[in-house]
Amino acid sequence: MKNKLKVLRAMRDWSQAQLGEHLDVSRQAVNAIETGKYDPSLPLAFKIARLFDLPIEEIFDDGFNGGKDA
C-alpha cells in the first residue's frame, strides 16, 4: 500500500530508527512500511496517524478512488 510515511518522517527530520522508537517498532519495520512491502496493522496505522496528527487516509492510500473514474 502506498503511503506518505517517508515524506512525513523527512518533514520532522527523523531517521528510521527515531521513528521506530516513537512507534515501538524496528527500523526494518519502518523501512518495510515506507517502501510498501509491509502493510501495518490497524492499531499501528492509528498510532502512526496520531503521531503525525493526520487521518489514516491522508497517510495511507489503498488506491480506491470511490469510483470517481467510472
Partner: peptide
C-alpha cells in the same frame, strides 16, 4: 526513548532501537 534532538545519521550508522537491541 531516543534523544530526538541528536543529529540525523546516515542509515547504516543509525543506532539500534530498544526492540532491535533486545532482539539482537
Amino acid at each position: 526513548m531516543t534523544d530526538l534532538t541528536e543529529a540525523k545519521m546516515p542509515k547504516n550508522d543509525e543506532p539500534l532501537t530498544k526492540k532491535e537491541r533486545l532482539n539482537r
